[in-house]
Amino acid sequence: MRLIKTFLAACFAVTMVPMALHAASGAPQPPAQNWPHQGLFGTFDKASAKRGAQVAVEICMGCHSIGLVKFDQLRKLGFSEAEVKSLAEVQGRTKIDRMNGAMDATAAKDAFGIVPPDLSLITKARKGYEDYTYAILNGYLTDAETALVQKVMADKNISEQEALELQSALLINTDNKEHLKDKLERLTGGASYNKYFPGNFSAMPQPLSNGQINYADGTENSLKQLSHDVVTFLAWAAEPTMEERKSCLAKIFAGVRGGSSPPAEVWRQQPTKVFLLTLILV
């Protein structure tokens, strides 16, 4: 038993304990959001993902591609064939096409200096995962913060008080005024500042804002809601087989027990019991 305990403790330690030391220049930790699809038996919020698909197609895909997904696969989220067709038409594609944007790589490179990354795996491909993508979408300066920057830059001189205000508003972790000033100069020069992007300056201008598009189901179209929905959609796009994966063991378990009870429910309500039963079965 001691061995098993050690083993389990080690496994949890590996997943739970953050081992990383953050370098001084590192970007701030993205705040944790509540994602229903996370957790042991979490499933995608399909309604949110559907709204997110609309945001992705109408806004993100102006520059980005989501090339590992085909429009037709959106039907798995509950879109009808007609809805899929009209979504594809937004980008001048048909339903059997991959979700590539209207902009090609060369045009994008000319416009932004770099090719915007494909978003198919974005929630798996950045540390911080869903929270990071959400933080980026919400990491641009608000009007109040922009005003603060302009106020500071007006007299070209940063007082102690202003430095502190800037540090907390822009989430910059530096006491070096030259460093601050350098950032402010680039900011007022028109570069896109993002609080959570490593190095703070991203080639992407603020993509989403309050009320940018209207949802068919009448859901509130605030920046927070838009970004939450689009991240939910991107999480689905990153691993459409996630629900199958999470329910797989439960199915096996239900099979062993006769398969009558709704497995996911049992698992969710009595995980300890299930775990012990599995141990006994072994």
Binding site: F7, L8, C11, L40, L121, K124, A125, Y129, L249, V282
Partner: peptide, 21 residues
């Protein structure tokens, strides 16, 4: 059991995010 926990519930625990780029 421990192996299955990771395969089914935390399969990316040991995979660096950068490897999905």
């Amino acid at each position: 059991i421990v192996y299955c926990y990771f395969v089914f519930f935390a399969p990316n625990a040991f995979i660096e995010a950068d490897n999905y780029i």
